[in-house]
Design a protein around this nucleic acid. Structure first.
Length: 662
DNA sequence: TCAATCCGTATC
DNA sequence: ATACGGATTGAC
């Protein structure tokens, strides 16, 4: 038996991010298997660790400490996940220990002791290409997955599509080929949907669903079932990107533009990037899907790594709803209902028609706080434009800007409240509740339901109703929505974020895809400026065109994914120290520093707000990405090694390809 | 002469 | 991080 155990110790220090060798005492020889959890003495302290490997001898010149304890002989860390975790740590300039904390859930001893549940019934294999037939190259992709080839695709789902069914069919194809599959979706509601589709496609007991809200025991039970090979298919939210599926043959990420796919814990890995890396490392198939297409997805196509999986234009056209843009609002004044609902009259008319046909209407409202509208400071009535009754807002430009109409653009100088004659304005946030009330008043006899942050609906019946919701919380409607109204589109587009247009379009496509086809009467009305590329892409239902544009724009601006970027955030001293210690690649370009606010946007800045932190951006060509990460990792290591020498005033953190920049 | 303290260094 | 050792400083 090999007497040496190579151990990854759980210490938070970048310069200790490497394996350490320990002697395996005779009594632990059988238990200290690769992948198991151990306790070891590390510089005198007891710390947790994982056995990465057993070896005949150590390279280490000094004497080895013995393993203190084998926590459990369960080999929780597979070789594949260990290798992936190392690669992810390297990619994000982070430590293996940080990634392992995300990848391996805390142990539940009682769960490990439970008897092994026998695997589910082997496939009855009702394999069919099903709706994949509609995609160019769809059946071929499916065949490739079954045959165990490393087929990779960026998939643009046909509007109205039950995407879960395609995902389930692909997973079934993978399992039929004798390999495992992993599906990662943004939220628990999507997990439930895919879970149901997998149940239908695979039969009982062949897959598990992993979500954060399961509770530790349940979660660990299912996770262990995956690790032990009891099941070979997993659907879950972002933490399951590291799920230890054995003989992995397929990874799937749905709606990769959703921010929920970005892990908020160090080293801040992104589901799409991790799954792409994972598939690449082991030659597994990969499917990156959504109704929209991200610039990152487009980059996977542009590099040739993945192939596009989309339906022919005529299929898309006949499946898509008819999209109209509501901007000009001359008609508004003549329509009291429109006025009451704060909606342009084309939107009201479209909703009326759908409701008259006993179809549900979806109303998408940007999240609370996204829409800076103004109200009377005294009586709180919302402030309206005197000519068109559109909502007044402040243009980006601070509180001193003159309020203007969001619809007709007219400046509201000398505004007075029509109710109480006050001349004082205040900013208010309009959320789903308030919007639902206002719209309800415009349609007195129609039931109104809401779906948002508190209380998300999964589905609504196919009857006349108004469904008001925030992006991402749209219920599916039986038979599809007769109309979808996309409110305040300008607000989504105007956000000072580089990804605003892509994100807005993603939200619109996701909602509009729930409408009936145009031939079946499905209509979409978006309140935004016609001719803006994102709006144009929705009208023409062309996600690929938008993504191509987006990627070209990013290339021009030199932003990810066209380049690789790192943000260094911390105290000015910390950032300077980190930069000074980093041997950056020649292509590196420095941007900044800029002051950053660390507190989240809330009810105003705290009294005496001080300049807390600053941020520098470093960008390099994509080819220099690994070198950039390595340089920053080395600098962090040196920084950490000095540690106490430099004061705590010199702190700084590194993030690669951060989601929010701009 | 001894001890309290401060750096600097190593962590299998 | 945290623990240890060797040098440094201060007080008896």
């Amino acid at each position: 038996m090999n007497p040496v155990a190579r151990v990854a110790v759980d210490v938070p220090l970048a310069h200790l991010d490497r394996p350490f060798d320990y002697l395996v005492p005779e009594r632990l020889a059988a238990q200290a298997v690769p992948g198991c959890r151990v306790r070891v003495r590390f510089n005198g302290l007891l710390v947790n660790g994982f056995v990465l490997a057993r070896a005949a001898a150590s390279e280490f010149a000094g004497g080895l400490q013995p393993l203190t304890r084998v926590v459990s002989a369960e080999p929780v860390l597979s070789a594949e996940v260990a290798g992936l975790a190392r690669a992810v740590a390297d990619r994000y300039a982070g430590t293996l220990a940080d990634v392992l904390r995300l990848a391996v859930p805390p142990r539940r001893a009682a769960v490990e002791r439970e008897p092994l549940v026998p695997p589910g019934v082997p496939p009855s294999d009702r394999l069919s290409a099903g709706t994949w037939q509609r995609y160019v190259g769809g059946p071929a992709f499916l065949a490739g997955v079954t045959q165990g080839r490393s087929v990779r695709a960026v998939w643009t789902a046909v509007p109205g599509d039950t995407w879960c069914v395609e995902i389930a069919a692909t997973v079934a194809a993978c399992l039929a080929g004798g390999r495992g599959a992993l599906v990662v979706v943004p939220d628990a509601r999507d997990v439930a949907r895919v879970d149901a589709a997998l149940g239908a496609a695979l039969g009982p007991g062949r897959h598990v669903a992993l979500t954060a809200d399961l509770g530790p025991a349940k979660r660990y039970r299912r996770w262990l079932a995956v690790r032990r090979g009891v099941v070979s298919a997993v659907v879950g939210t972002r933490a399951s990107m590291f799920a230890p599926v054995g003989n992995l043959g397929l990874v799937v990420v749905w709606d990769d533009g959703d921010d929920l796919h970005a892990e908020p814990q160090a080293p801040y890995p992104h589901v799409r990037d991790v799954l792409v890396l994972r598939a690449h490392r082991i030659g597994a198939g990969a499917l990156v899907g959504g109704f929209a297409r991200t610039a990152e997805g487009e980059a996977l196509l542009a590099s040739g790594w993945a192939k596009a999986l989309a339906a022919p234009r005529d299929v898309v056209r006949s499946a898509a709803p008819r999209v109209a843009v509501a901007t000009d609002d001359a008609v508004l004044q003549s329509d009291p209902a429109a006025r009451a609902a704060r909606l342009p009259s084309p939107a009201i008319q479209t909703a009326r028609q759908a409701l008259a046909a006993d179809a549900p209407v979806l109303v998408q409202v940007p999240r609370r706080g996204y829409v800076p509208v103004l109200a009377c400071a005294d009586c709180r009535a919302s402030a309206r434009c005197v000519t068109c009754a559109g909502p007044l807002g402040l243009a980006a430009g601070g509180p001193d800007a003159v309020p203007g109409c969001r619809w007709c653009g007219q400046q509201a100088t000398g505004w007075r409240c029509v109710h109480c004659d006050s001349d004082r304005l205040r900013a208010v946030v309009v959320g789903v509740r308030r919007t639902a009330e206002e719209i309800g008043r415009a349609f007195p006899d129609v039931p109104v339901v809401t779906s948002g942050r508190d209380g998300v609906l999964a589905a609504v019946p196919g009857q006349s109703a108004l469904v008001v919701c925030t992006p991402g919380a749209e219920p599916v409607a039986a038979g599809g929505y007769g109309a979808v109204l996309l409110l305040d589109g300008w607000a989504l587009l105007a956000r000072p974020d580089l990804r605003a247009a892509e994100e807005a379009l993603r939200c619109w496509f996701a909602a509009a895809a729930l409408a009936r086809s145009g031939t079946a009467g499905g209509r979409v009305v978006i309140m935004a400026t016609a001719g803006v590329p994102a709006v144009e892409a929705l009208v023409r239902w062309d996600p690929g065109w938008a993504a191509g544009r987006e990627l070209r724009d990013r290339a021009e601006l030199r932003f990810p994914p066209a380049v690789r970027m790192a943000s260094l955030t911390g105290t000015p001293a910390g950032v300077a120290e980190l930069l000074a210690g980093a041997e950056l690649p020649a292509s590196a370009e420095l941007l900044g520093p800029v002051a950053v606010v660390t507190s989240p946007p809330g009810p105003g800045p705290p009294p005496g707000a001080e300049p807390v932190a600053e941020r520098m951006l470093v960008r390099v060509s994509r080819a220099d990405g690994p070198a950039l990460a390595a340089a920053l990792k080395a600098a962090s290591a040196a920084h950490a090694a000095r540690g106490s020498a430099f004061s705590a005033a010199a702190r700084a953190g590194v993030r690669l390809d951060p989601i929010e920049v701009g």
